[in-house]
Amino acid sequence: MRHIISALVENRAGVLSRISGLFARRGFNIDSLAVGETDDPKISRITIIVNGDEHIADQVTKQLNKLIDVLKVKSLTHIETTRRELVLIKVKADEKQRGEIIDIARIMDCDIVDASHSTLMLEFVNRPERVDLLIDLLRKYKILEIARTGMVALQKGPDAI
């Protein structure tokens, strides 16, 4: 099962290394990890997607809580959330394929942000499942490279972490 864990951490040197080191040491498999500053420049928010059973999710939360640089941890797995991920995909697009790829981009409602004689770059912000779908649709063509940010999520409604 995929767990979404959100944490507020001190925005200072070495913190990310502490967190990623903890995951490696305790054998937790991270699917993705996204980090960014919050409205307070001294605090960053990290969103971690980890695969495993409830026991793993419980340990991840507790071990993160133990780190002094981690200020707050919350599991968003069983909470209604808005989840988003950004992806950039560079796909091979010669004249024959170009039209089909543009069609896919239109159907999926994603932007074409760069083009060359032989390639197109697509930008897409959506739920991770939709991102997976887009990648799947483009697999038919030659994908040259992909960059995904990893998922970020916020709890719906008035409650905050």
């Binding site: 340990q59 507790k62 809580n65």
Partner: peptide, 8 residues
């Protein structure tokens, strides 16, 4: 005293 030990 360490919540992480409980259930580990």
């Amino acid at each position: 005293i360490d919540p992480a030990e409980i259930g580990k």
